[in-house]
Design a protein around this nucleic acid. Structure first.
Length: 438
DNA sequence: GGGTATGATTCTAT
DNA sequence: ATAGAATCATACCC
């Protein structure tokens, strides 16, 4: 701005950015420089006063023509263009170099992930299928729903691409129009090529904003579609049998503290083909329902415990230490081969598991006070040997899932098994379980 | 169709 | 933020 003012402030002198007189614009003519200055001054004067003049069309045309035909016009335009470039344009240019918009990137990523944008086949419908499968817990979904979902997604895709094309076309048309217009105008006012370039950039930006809105709406549409079709609450799906089994195995083998760590949850989620929050939900439900219905749960617990025990015994080998596990009149043996040995549980949990077998196999039967698991549960719950995991130091995550005698309700009644209050967390390598003293 | 099981959500407490 | 508890909504079984 300052430079511009400086230029115009000198009536007769045409200066460049640094305030020097510009000798290079003499266009190869050898007029005395005083005369040149005078002429330039005239032109500038005309330009400066042009807004104050009210001209009728004929007059304006005449004057324009005079100006256009002036032999100094090209030189003047060059200077003006240069000044424009060096001031306004250069400032804005530097600001235009922005990093890619993170929101736009997010939208793009989502659209590609959902199969709306990106390659038509392979990235399209299959991505949608993947999304469906993932949301339904990895189970094969009903074909009807599946195709319905895909059909709607394809519709969204179609609309998206049509609109995108439309915008692109409009953008190109408009850009061409503006460029032509500017080129046209460059005959009557100084317009640098860079200025045209910049204008094109501005137009593209404006259209990019519209495009972003389109992407946003498309994303919203996909989200709505997903929630409508895949919202688990609307159409609750049971987990696969295998998944439930894995979860139950974990639950009952960590009954002393059925609070899986984040890692354990992730592992379970991965193995079960469900999400981590589904695992959390499952454990939340399981814990509460286990407590509510301890009797029935106990039976289930024994089943899973036996399975785990069997697996553990199988790992040890029939000759090795299996005999040591065969407590309670050999009942553990009947669970052998239940799960083919590919148990998720590692052997360290087998101790815990075994305790359930023991509890079932007569460990408590002689107890006149607490002969049923339910009553035991009640007793220990009332005693609350350990407070709720939350009330202990740190969050539940800080605890190891199998960390001991205390903690949860089952852990409490497990303690009854152990005269000394030993740790049954499975970290012990001692397979020999004592018969409860009670 | 009714009862139960089960996954998800919501609310409250900590 | 997470757990427990209550509740909702759906699946599943009889």
């Amino acid at each position: 701005m300052e430079d511009g003012q400086r230029m115009y402030s000198q009536q007769g002198g045409l200066t460049n950015m640094s305030g020097n007189v510009l000798p290079q614009y003499n266009m190869g003519q050898d007029e005395p420089s005083d005369q040149r200055k005078q002429e330039i001054g005239d032109i500038l004067q005309q330009i400066m006063t042009i807004t104050d003049q009210s001209l009728d069309e004929a007059q304006a045309r005449c004057r324009k023509h005079t100006l256009n035909c002036h032999r100094m016009k090209p030189a003047l335009f060059s200077v003006l263009c240069e000044i424009k470039e060096k001031t306004v344009l250069s400032i804005r240019n530097s600001q235009e170099e922005e990093p890619p918009d993170p929101q736009l990137m997010r939208l793009d990523n989502m659209l590609i992930a959902e199969g709306v944008a990106g390659p038509e086949k392979g990235g399209g419908s299959s991505a949608a299928a993947n999304a469906t499968a993932a949301a339904s817990g990895g189970q094969p979904d009903s074909a009807i729903e599946h195709s319905d979902y895909r059909a709607k997604l394809a519709q969204i895709r179609q609309i998206y691409h049509t609109e995108l094309e439309k915008y692109e076309q409009a953008c190109n048309e408009f850009t061409t129009h503006v460029v032509n217009l500017l080129r046209e105008q460059s005959r009557t006012r100084p317009i640098a090529p860079k200025e045209i370039e910049r204008m094109v950039t501005i137009i593209r930006k404006k259209f990019a904003a519209i495009e972003m809105q389109l992407k946003q709406s498309t994303c919203e549409a996909v989200m709505i579609l997903r929630s409508r079709f895949l919202d688990a609450r609307r159409k609750r799906r049971n987990f696969s049998k295998q998944a439930t089994e894995l979860l139950n195995e974990y639950f009952y083998s960590h009954l002393s503290n059925p609070y899986p760590s984040e890692e354990a949850k992730e592992e379970l989620a991965r193995k079960c083909g469900i999400t981590v929050s589904q695992v959390s939900n499952w454990f939340g439900n399981k814990r509460i329902r286990y407590k509510k219905n301890i009797n029935k749960a106990q039976e289930e617990a024994n089943m899973y415990a036996a399975k785990t025990a069997a697996a553990a015994a199988a790992n040890v080998g029939p000759e090795g230490g299996a005999a040591g596990y065969n407590v309670g009149g050999g009942q553990a043996g009947m669970y052998m081969n239940l799960n083919g040995g590919d148990n998720y549980q590692s052997s360290d949990n087998s101790v815990n598991a075994l305790r359930h077998v023991i509890s079932q196999s007569g460990g408590y039967s002689s107890d006149s006070m607490h002969s049923t698991p339910a009553s035991m549960y009640e007793q220990h719950m009332n005693q609350q040997i350990t407070p709720h995991p939350r009330s202990q130091n740190g969050s539940p995550h800080d605890q190891k899932p199998d960390d001991s005698t205390d903690s949860w309700c089952a852990g409490a009644f497990m303690q009854g098994l152990d005269g000394e209050g030993d740790n049954y967390d499975g970290s012990s390598d001692e397979p020999g379980l004592k018969r409860p003293k009670i």
